[in-house]
Write a protein that binds this DNA or RNA. Structure first.
Lengths: 344, 344
DNA sequence: TTGACAAACCGTACCGGTAACGTTAATATT
DNA sequence: AATATTAACGTTACCGGTACGGTTTGTCAA
């Protein structure tokens, strides 16, 4: 078994001290050019790979950041993660992931693990069912940046989507298309994003002078299955027939569509559908899904950039970056003319 | 700024030596029960978190494994990653991810980073455009397990799906449904999985006594966009009209469906579609997608289990685990009776 | 000649743990 | 009483680097 080559091996082979070898490899001064080149060559020949553990033990921080999300297999979070990985890798950082599964216990456990691993910083989409992990991070202290969500009453760094504006634009658009009875299929409002979008929905309706009936605001688990089952349960209870569904996410829109179709409704002829997120498959299904696109990758990239800045330059005042969403109009929300409405 | 509490702090506070504190925290013998409890309590009060770096530096390996995949936002890999994370987290391991983006250069770079981070082992879905990362891993030596793919000529640990069988079953089923002109929209065959499925396709056709025309085997990039564009290009060049498309993945099936519909074909009335992978959205779209389900999460779990076994018990002979796929019949591949065929 | 100064090294003390090996004092054995 | 044994600690040497401060050698100026 080939003994893992250490800095000492390189130094010995080059006939210099460990110290000199270290300086040469780190391109620091006080090493003759000739010696430096020799050391570098030998290091390469011996396949020397520095031990990040030892470096981290000595220096301030490791070169890896942690990313904790709700659900790794949800394309929204997957894209965010991808963006973060992109930036991290380009800056020489490794990315350690955690899947909280929306379970605050697991979230806390993951944070603890990351602290143990001496992760340099943390990117996290909090479950928002519990904020105790924040005090843990504060007392370390370990820099962290919230992604896509924030706590109303706690000032932290965060990179967010303008969910209020996104929902506002969506509803404004739906009304402009002539929809009269919009059903908002939201996620639980302990999620910042959900409460923001609810806000947006309300404001847009109000601005258009529309009253909101209680049945128009519904809530279910933000998953494919959750929205499918939720929609099935909700449909029979409605006191009026919706002519459009605005879902919290594209995934939820897919689930809703399935439930609507099973109930005998034609999409988009009988009922329009609007999603949120802008996942790739939205454009591949039929009808292509109208949605509000979040710059997911960019969210991840910006967050990673912020975090790495914090790691390398020390803490700063809680700063929030808010990215603008983009309305993406496709085929699932055709125009409703008054004529058609009258016929109905 | 609160100084990060170290083992020494705990020891001092408890009035014992560092060593005793260490033994107490690790539940090792030679510590009086009373002392041990005191130390544990103090450690908790001081929010002591062991430094994994220091432990790793001393011990054999870290408690984190690396996972490198083609594309984090592809639901197939996302599910695999999720499965791996599940097992790793439950065993106290952290998961470091890398996105190779099918780029062998980035793949190599990531492997190098993981080695630097002294990852205990590696899970990897190789790009298969280059196998040089393997020699890097061998000379470390760092245990690794390939996932979903393997190299024909290199014996390594691997956890695989039985892609031959999956494709065979798929084609057999399509033929049983009465399809006469199946188009196989495959991924590049340098991918082990693609070559295996091609094998399965061929064997199943042969077993049914069907000849394979050249146009029936096509290949394009294994992405949503790739299959959409690929299908658009392929369609006009076909010398015969396919009555079914068997795609390498569900994502590719989605892309293909869009291209087919744009070409004026009705799915599934004019042309049947079959995918592979069994991603969740397959069941939500219309028509619900017939597919071959891979136990993705389980793939990730088994791989992580194998790897952790290697890490903790030393290397063993290259062992391959092959998971059976499952045919999932839905609405995208309705029966074609001879009558219908004649009418056409 | 000799002191000043810089270039190019080397020695050594950490970082925060773990583990092999001593040490001490109390109890058990003969 | 003397020796053996053991429970319960403490000492110290690593692990693989980094960084601060010497030490050597050579050049140049006074």
């Amino acid at each position: 078994m080939t003994h893992k080559t250490t800095l000492k091996d390189v130094a010995d082979a080059a006939g210099v001290s460990i110290n000199t070898a270290s300086r040469a490899l780190n391109h620091k001064p006080d090493v003759k050019e000739e010696t430096k080149e020799r050391i570098l060559r030998i290091a390469k020949d011996l396949h020397y790979v520095p031990n990040a553990m030892a470096q981290a033990l000595k220096g301030k921080h490791t070169r890896s950041i942690g990313v904790i999300v709700d659900d790794l297999s949800n394309p929204f979070f997957a894209e965010v993660l991808k963006g973060a990985e992109e930036v991290a890798a380009s800056r020489g950082y490794a990315v350690t992931v955690g899947n909280s599964a929306e379970d605050p216990k697991k979230e806390l456990h993951l944070v603890r693990t990351m602290i143990e691993q001496r992760t340099a910083g943390l990117l996290i989409t909090p479950t928002q069912k519990d904020s105790s992990f924040i005090s843990l991070l504060h007392q370390e202290p370990l820099p962290f940046v919230l992604v896509a969500r924030r706590f109303e009453s706690i000032a932290t760094h965060a990179v967010l989507n303008d969910d209020f504006s996104g929902a506002y634009q969506a509803v404004e658009y739906l009304l402009r298309q002539g929809y009269q009875n919009i059903l908002f299929l939201n996620a639980p409002t302990y999620l910042w994003s959900a409460s923001q979008r609810l806000h947006g929905f309300r404001q847009a309706m109000e601005a258009a002078g529309r009253a909101i009936e209680p049945w128009q605001i519904q809530c279910c688990l933000p998953t494919l299955q959750g929205s499918y089952e939720g929609m099935r349960e909700i449909l029979p209870t409605l006191t009026a027939a919706p002519d459009a569904v605005f879902a919290f996410s594209d995934y939820m829109a897919l689930g809703a569509i399935k439930a609507l179709r099973e109930a005998g409704l034609r999409v988009p002829d009988d009922i329009g559908i609007m999603g949120y997120d802008g996942i790739d498959v939205g454009d591949m299904i039929s009808p292509a899904l109208t949605t509000v696109r979040i710059a997911k990758r960019r969210l991840g990239r910006e967050a990673a950039r912020s975090l790495i800045h914090l790691v390398e330059n020390g803490p700063g005042n809680a700063k929030q970056t808010i990215l603008p969403p983009e309305l993406v109009i496709r085929q699932s929300t055709p125009e409703r003319t008054q004529a058609i409405k009258d016929i109905q």
